[in-house]
Write a protein that binds this DNA or RNA. Structure first.
Length: 288
DNA sequence: AGTTGAGCCTGTTCGC
DNA sequence: TGCGAACAGGCTCAAC
């Protein structure tokens, strides 16, 4: 599952391998992969044909490539299992190849969107005046964005009547934090996932954001080295997760701080992993 | 109007 | 052995 650091690696790969190239034929092999392009697959392919690609951008887990005059962008999301690959044109099709973008040049490579579960996809959108595809204008900046405002984030947490993990996954508050990094940063912060955000102090928020950034930067440092191969690297297996996880997927394993077995609890149709000793559940708070 | 939780999708793993 | 259930989860949106 590509997390923000992996998506950043893909962005760098796109920057390296497709910037400035002019699109030739576009082949949509699965309609679901362009479902966010409301005008449909044929329109997607026709509009893209002949367009020159700009420099790839990223916010959270969204990627986009501005087109020619910057009024439109090619937007992508990898979902759970998506990959963007730059492949030799004669390489055999991947089993789950969904979209093929051929270039009108002599470099001999093409861009492929491969996605087993088709949670991800590509689409074309008008840009906002800020240069952001309009459909993601509501997505908050991610914590690695220099313009992310910690004070504004904290103020929003205080106003919300929700829990801290839910807030970490709320794209309108902060983007790019998935289930894995949420559990990891909460473990590092010794915060229980059901802690009401309204009870977080400013130092607690600062600590939490620091750990979110640490986890992401550590993964980026480990996964960010392979992007200058021919492949735009995105297999979702950075190797980071197997070696470095403290909480996520560690049910029954001793907590790396105190030795108490890590617990797994069903949460929002998925799981939350936490240390029952280090991350104490919040006391019931009277609602004012 | 803010908050909640179901649902999308398919390959893999697990238990009966 | 075979089959169905559970699971993985980023994001949206209907419903409360």
């Amino acid at each position: 599952m590509p997390e923000l650091p992996e998506v950043e690696v893909v962005r760098r790969g796109l920057e390296r391998w497709v910037t400035g190239r002019r699109v030739g034929a576009v082949e949509v092999l699965h309609p679901r992969a362009v479902r966010r392009h409301l005008a449909g697959g044929p329109d997607f392919a026709a509009r893209l044909h002949g367009i020159r690609l700009g420099t790839a951008m990223r916010r959270g887990k969204y990627l986009w490539v501005p087109l020619d005059d910057m009024t439109f962008s090619l937007l992508g999301h990898l979902g759970m299992s998506g990959q963007l690959l730059v492949q030799p044109q004669d390489a055999p099709d991947e089993k789950h190849l969904r979209i093929r973008i051929v270039f009108d040049d002599a470099l001999g490579t093409e861009l492929r969107f491969v996605d087993q579960r088709t949670f991800g996809g590509l689409s074309l959108h008008e840009n906002t005046p800020e240069g952001l595809p309009d459909t993601i204008a509501h997505i908050a900046r991610d914590p690695l964005d220099p313009a992310f405002d910690d004070a504004v984030f904290h103020a929003a947490l205080r106003l919300r009547r929700t829990t801290v993990k839910r807030a970490l996954l709320d794209q309108t508050l902060i983007s790019g934090v998935g289930n894995i990094y949420a559990d990891e940063s909460l473990w590092r912060s010794r915060l229980h996932y059901e802690r009401p955000t309204a009870t977080l102090t400013r130092p607690a928020t600062t600590l939490l954001l620091g750990h979110v950034r640490d986890v992401m930067n550590e993964a980026l440092a480990q996964g960010g080295t392979s992007f200058d191969s021919l492949y735009v690297n995105v297999n979702g297996e950075s190797g980071y997760f197997d070696r470095s996880l403290d909480a996520y997927g560690q049910e029954g394993e001793p907590c790396h701080r105190c030795g108490t077995p890590i617990r797994r609890r069903p949460w929002m149709n998925r799981s939350s992993y936490y240390c029952p000793h280090c991350q104490r559940p919040p006391r019931a708070q009277p609602v004012p």
